[in-house]
Every structure is written in C-alpha cells, then in structure tokens.
Design a protein around this nucleic acid. Structure first.
Lengths: 204, 204
DNA sequence: GTCTATACGCTGATAGAC
DNA sequence: GTCTATCAGCGTATAGAC
C-alpha cells in the first residue's frame, strides 16, 4: 500500500498510448472473465460450469478467477447481478401493452437474465433470486389490475412470460424459436387483455 | 449360474408365507430405490443428486444402486420414464377445456414429470426429453386450432402450461402456490379461448 | 447376492515459486 | 501480480470379501 502510486492519477512515461496500463487492464480482464462466466452459466447452468472452464474460455489462468472473485458462488453472483430494473406500472388500459413490450425485449435479445434463469431450478440461490424478482414484478403488476384476484392474475401473467421465454431460449421449442417477437406478442395480446380484465367476451 | 435354482418356479420349504422371497424382494427394493431417486431428482435436479444420496434415502448400499441400474444416467432415465401418455385431440370448441383439465391435474398432484422438469434446463438429456414431449403436445394441439398460425398458437398454449406449472411447483411463487387449481383454471379460461380462436372480442 | 474397500477423475480452493 | 503445484473432498464406478 505504501509505495503504490495511484494508477489513475499518474500518466506513464510513454505519451502516445491511451494508457491501457495498471488498473485499466485489470478491469478489462475482469470484465472478460465476467463475460465468459455469463456465457457458461447461461448455457450450462451453475453446477456444470467450472472455474477452469470460464478461465479457459476467457484465456486466463483459473487461479486468477479465484484471485479476483474469491469463490465460484461470488463469481456467479457478480455474473448474474442485474441492476434491478425498476419499471413503472402503467394504467390498466395500457398495462397489457407494457407487458407485451417487456416480453418483446426478453424475446429478441439474448436476455441478461438467462444465466440466472438457467440455474433457477437447480441452484438454490438462483431460485431465490428469480423468485424474489418475479414476486416483485407480480406485486407491481397486481396494482394495475382492476379485476378481482389481482395478485393471482398478475402471477399468471408473469408465469406466461416465464413460460414463453424459457420455452424459446432455454428449451428452444421449434415454433417459439422461429417466430418473430412481433408474431408472438400479437398472438398473446388478446390473451393478456382477457387475463387483465375479467372476461374475454364482455358478457356471454 | 449352474447351481442356481429358478426363483420363480420352486416354492420354498415354508408353506404359510405369501412367498416374499427372491425376485419379489428384489423388485421391491428396486422400486424403493426408484421412488427415492424420483424424490431426489425432483427436488435437487440431476447434477446435485448423488448415488450415495438416493441409496441413503432408500436405506440400501450405494453399490447396490449401481448393481441394479448400471449408472447414474440410466437410473435417471428409468426414474423419469413416463409411459408417453397419448391424449386425444378434441374438437376446437372443447379444446380449451381439455387443456385446462390437463393443467388441473398438473397443478393438483405432485406431477410425475417434476423430476424431469427440474433438470430440463441443466441436463442435456432431460432437455431433449422435455422438448420432444412438448413438441408432440404442440403438434397435437395445433390440429385442434382453427385459426391462423395454429402451431405457434399451440406452442404458446403449451408454454403457458409450462410457465404456470414451473412457477407453482418449482419456483413456488406465492400466489400460484396458494391458489386452488380451480381458481387458476377459471382465470386462465378466457385467455385460452382467446389464444385458440383469433380474437378476444369478436370484432372490435 | 449384498456390502466393504478402493481406484480414479474432477471439482473448488490454497500455498508458494517466479 | 501471475501462474505452477498441490490439497482435500466428493463424484461415479469397480473389484473383491463375506
């Protein structure tokens, strides 16, 4: 600690380089490891990914991963940590559209939640994280549902999102995988509306 | 092999016992092991269940499990093997009810498919088994859907079943766990109908 | 036939050389 | 700071004693 200079403050002797030295390089390799870990956790799940595996994929030494993150569990936590995106509840009328747009982004890109979701059923900590996140979404959504049993309706809506995303990305069911996000959201729209308000056909 | 008598043919010296001997006892312990394996696979998933664990829970020696089933993977296959229940497609009008009744049984009892489902996202073989089973259900359901995009609609319906069952049994989301199967199926009915035919409100 | 003892590989994790 | 060498534990699977 005593003789170490602040790596951010002092510029190196070379003038031309955009100073990729010291702590900057460390942050880069750390990010490389995290990216590699996310890939491995996403496609193999917690128990099947190994420290050696992510180190190899990142091109670094296994011991370095331990040095940086301490343990496999802490690596997992940092890899799957999502900034807890807070979404605002909309009015009941547009609530379906909000949900559909959320589903849209989950369907298009390889969602950042996939590493977590893959391990959600086998790794206890991942289970708890996913459950807590979904519970928050459910509670939030329930406030935008005017019909009876708002919590259960909200839970069912979240379960639908869960089933569709897992079916597409994790199980890769053919038709779900091939369809465009728009196709899916279009087909789901009436179902969502039916779930949000009480009936599909207003009075039979 | 030479001196061994056929255990099925020759009755033992005792006359009063209902002959629980030989192969009958073997079948019983084998079934105990399978039951124990199903429990472990169901609540821990493939990678976290150990031969020693199922043997301990079944009250037998770990080596016996290997003797009977050969390997962990073969034990898993036998434990999760479901007789491939063939359901008949109904008319489009009653198709929603059929799906809802299927969901009802999946929601009430601890479904026999849970050991498989828990490992579906981490164990490749389980993934393939679940995917094949769901694909069959999707193809079957598509034939009962008169609207456009029948396969995608069917896939979405299956995905909903998947999401609701996993949300209830695997993630144990509060409101899904507490609700009765009837509550859930009642709330889902309009959504299913909307998904089967094209629109929720016939012409807007 | 059933269990004891053990082999072997691979895991996460640690200590110490460079 | 980075990597080599190694530890201890647990996993499946096997060989042999009873």
């Amino acid at each position: 600690m005593s003789a170490a200079r602040n790596p951010e403050a002092g510029p190196p002797g070379e003038a031309g380089r955009p100073r990729p030295s010291r702590a900057e390089r460390r942050r880069q390799t750390e990010e490389r490891i995290l990216a590699s870990a996310r890939r491995e956790f996403a496609e193999r799940g917690y128990e099947r990914t190994t420290i050696r595996g992510v180190a190899g994929a990142a091109g670094v030494d296994p011991a370095l991963v331990m040095q940086y993150f301490g343990s496999k569990d802490q690596l997992f936590r940092q890899a799957v940590h999502v900034p807890a995106g807070e979404e605002l509840p909309a009015e009941p009328a547009e609530f379906a559209e909000l949900l559909l747009s959320i589903l849209g982004v989950k369907l298009s890109g390889q969602a950042a939640t996939m590493p977590l979701l893959r391990s959600a059923f086998t790794h206890p900590e991942a289970t708890e994280a996913v459950r807590a996140s979904l519970a928050a979404q459910i509670a939030q959504g329930a406030r935008a549902i005017p019909a009876d049993d708002p919590e259960l309706r909200s839970a069912l809506l979240v379960a639908v999102l869960l089933g569709v995303t897992t079916g597409r990305h994790l199980l890769e069911l053919d038709h779900l995988r091939d369809a465009s996000p728009e196709q899916i959201t279009d087909l789901l729209r009436p179902a969502f509306q039916a779930l949000i308000r009480g009936s599909s056909e207003p009075d039979a």
